[in-house]
């Protein structure tokens, strides 16, 4: 097999090119310029190259996705998010599939910068391609994907060039259900329910109240929709168009977009300050 320049090559390291392994890269990096031949013969960008010019780091995200929720249930794990990506506070891209299939047992989703997520997906595709080329029928497990992403995020944070995302990884393999998250600076955890982004404030209290690991799929789905509704009604950068993806031992399924029923006609919404003395 012809060796390719991929991010999981132990010399290059996940997500970054360490100083000293590629003299040509170092020389150009030193001049604060990315490699000039950044477009390969097939017309697409090479990995680890950007447009020539001064090296820039992400100072803030541009196009962002918000809340992702995840919970385990009796037969597997599900994650949910809307299909919106915002440009600042503008609802800019309204039909983005924010949940991606990584391999036959793993899905991931994100909050934060959309383009950084695309980059992360390209890293995972490299990994999956390598797996496929090995031709031994084995794939990375969800917890291995999660572990890899933790290192990628942490390494980029160490370079002061973070990938501006929180990621949620979910999957089932070898009878083990996995649900984990990793943040922009590499902080990560596993839990039986979790939320990335604004959902941490709105949805997790509901999960803590109602979630159990052995709940049925219908119950989990209903709870998930309740949580989505709670987020939707308080987060202006959310939209009523959701997808729920589930992974079970039997396989993986990303749903068609759907809406949750919503109601703004509650009595207490009509005069919200009525029972709040001192409010206006």
């Amino acid at each position: 097999m012809i060796p390719t320049r991929v991010s999981h090559n132990p010399i290059i390291g996940p997500g970054v090119v360490p100083f000293g392994v590629d003299p040509a890269y170092d020389a150009q990096y030193k001049l604060n310029q990315a490699p000039r031949s950044h477009v390969a013969s097939h017309g697409q960008g090479k990995p680890f190259t950007v447009e020539p010019g001064p090296h820039q780091r992400t100072q803030y995200p541009y196009v962002t996705g918000t809340t992702v929720l995840g919970c385990k249930y009796k037969d597997g794990v599900m994650i949910a998010c809307d299909t919106l990506c915002c440009y600042g506070s503008t609802k800019r891209y309204k039909s983005v599939e924010r949940i991606k299939k990584v391999n036959s047992s793993t899905i991931i989703s994100f909050t934060g910068e959309l383009s950084d997520f695309h980059y992360i997906v390209s890293l995972l595709e490299e990994l999956d391609t390598t797996d496929y080329c090995e031709d031994d029928g084995s794939e990375l497990a969800p917890w291995e994907i999660h572990s890899y992403l933790c290192r990628v995020m942490y390494n980029r944070r160490n370079k002061f060039d973070p990938l501006w995302n929180s990621l949620v990884v979910a999957g089932v393999k070898h009878g083990r259900t996995f649900l984990g998250t990793v943040g922009m600076i590499g902080q990560h955890y596993e839990d039986s329910h979790l939320a990335a982004g604004f959902g941490n404030h709105m949805a997790r209290p509901l999960f803590r109240e109602k979630h159990t690991d052995d709940m049925s799929e219908e119950d989990a789905r209903k709870l998930m929709e309740d949580c989505l509704r709670a987020c939707l009604m308080r987060d202006k950068t959310m939209m009523n168009k959701f997808q729920i993806a589930k992974v079970t031992a039997g396989g993986l399924e990303i749903s068609e977009p759907f809406q949750v029923p919503m109601n703004w006609g509650y009595e207490k919404f009509k005069d919200p300050t009525k029972h709040a003395v001192g409010a206006w």
Binding site: N32, P54, R57, Q59, Y60, R157, N158, F160, P162, M184, I185, Q187
Partner: peptide, 20 residues
Amino acid sequence: MPHDGSGPTTRANWSPYDNN
């Protein structure tokens, strides 16, 4: 922008640390 250190310095508006 010149990159010889004479230009304005921009600092990241994020922290590489968190206290957990």
